Amino acid sequence: MFFAQAKKPTIMIVPSDLWCNKNGYVMDYNNQGTIEKIPNYKQAFQENSELSFVISKINGLMAERGFPLKNMESVLKTLSKDSAEDVMMSSKDSGSSVSESPIDKLKKVAKADIIMQLTWTVASLGPKKQITFNLQGLDSYTDKQIATAAGTGNPSFSVSEAVLLEEAILSHLDNFNNSLQDYFEDLFENGREVVIKIQKWDDWDEDLESSFGSDNEELSVIIEDWLSDNTVKGRYNTTDATENMMLFEQVRIPLYYERKGKQRAMDTRRFVSNLSRYLRGEDFNIVSKVVTNGLGKATIILGGK
């Protein structure tokens, strides 16, 4: 009854960086002057016929166990429809800096709680084939590994990698799913972990040691009080604080918030925007800009848009 009523994490299955690199599905990305190789998922789906079958097979196994899944191929099409991929590619050519990598944008559109990263290799043993796999469950906000399943299937005459993979992971999947659900239940109770940074524009005349409001409190104290009131169980850690910046880590934000009588998923941008709106109120009149860095980090820049 408990698990039937509990909310399930949303999941998206992706081929691992190792699998993409080994099979040549990578592209160069200019990350603020540093060239990085990142997976080219779109090319992988277009050129590797087994990839769609493998992911579809695992999607089916997960769906049978009551876990909602995001279809990665559909998410990529949504990105293309919004011309997001064109923007990502042009940033490589122009060398301009961006706040989110292409992988972050993919996660943002998918809005999945957990990323299942899959690696597999197939070896030939005479007329038979044998598959070795590694399945990792990653928190899409922090990239922390929360579940894993790995093993080697029995040799088989099957020619389909999807069927070989199904046979290999079946004995591991239930324990893997239990780990995912346990982690999600912990998030539901204790909040999702994110990072929040506070900065100021150079031309703003105030700083975090300036006093505001009817109580004439320092701005840094006002912000910490708000976090204490709005995080799950008041959990956050002030890692650094000066007159010009503050860094909060292990900030536990709720998974959901209520709007118009419906529960909606809370993300870092929504949570930080609430803080920005609070500071913009008549008690403080502080205008600020919110900048997101992937799913799990956001920055408020005080003193203007």
Rank of each mutant, 00 (worst) to 15 (best):
F2N: 09
A4T: 12
Q5P: 05
Q5E: 14
K8V: 01
T10H: 04
T10C: 04
I13Q: 06
V14D: 05
D17I: 08
W19H: 04
C20K: 02
C20E: 01
N23P: 05
G24H: 02
Y25G: 07
N30C: 01
N31V: 01
N40T: 01
A44Y: 07
E47G: 03
E50Q: 14
E50P: 03
F53W: 13
S56L: 10
I58M: 15
N59Y: 15
G60H: 02
M62I: 07
R65D: 11
P68M: 05
V75I: 15
L76Y: 00
K77E: 15
K77Y: 12
A84N: 11
A84T: 09
D86I: 05
V87R: 15
S90H: 13
K92Y: 08
S94R: 11
S96L: 14
D104M: 01
K105S: 13
K111F: 00
A112N: 01
M116H: 09
M116E: 11
Q117H: 10
L118W: 04
T119V: 05
T121I: 12
G126L: 03
K128V: 05
T132M: 12
L135E: 03
G137M: 04
K144E: 08
K144G: 02
I146H: 06
A150D: 07
G151M: 01
G153T: 07
S156P: 08
V159R: 12
V163S: 03
L164I: 00
L165I: 06
E167H: 04
I169E: 00
S171Q: 15
S171N: 12
N177M: 14
S179R: 13
F188M: 12
E193H: 03
V194Y: 02
I196P: 01
D203T: 15
D205Y: 07
E206P: 04
S214H: 08
D215P: 09
E217N: 15
L219W: 12
L219R: 05
V221E: 08
L227M: 14
L227V: 04
T231Y: 09
V232T: 00
G234I: 03
G234H: 04
T239W: 11
T239P: 07
E243W: 08
N244I: 11
F248C: 04
E249P: 02
Q250I: 06
I253K: 12
E258F: 07
K260N: 15
G261D: 14
M266W: 06
V272M: 01
N274V: 02
L275Y: 04
D283M: 11
F284P: 06
N285A: 03
V287N: 09
V291S: 10
T292H: 10
A298P: 02
T299I: 09
L302P: 00
G303R: 13
G303C: 10
G304F: 06
G304D: 15
G304M: 08
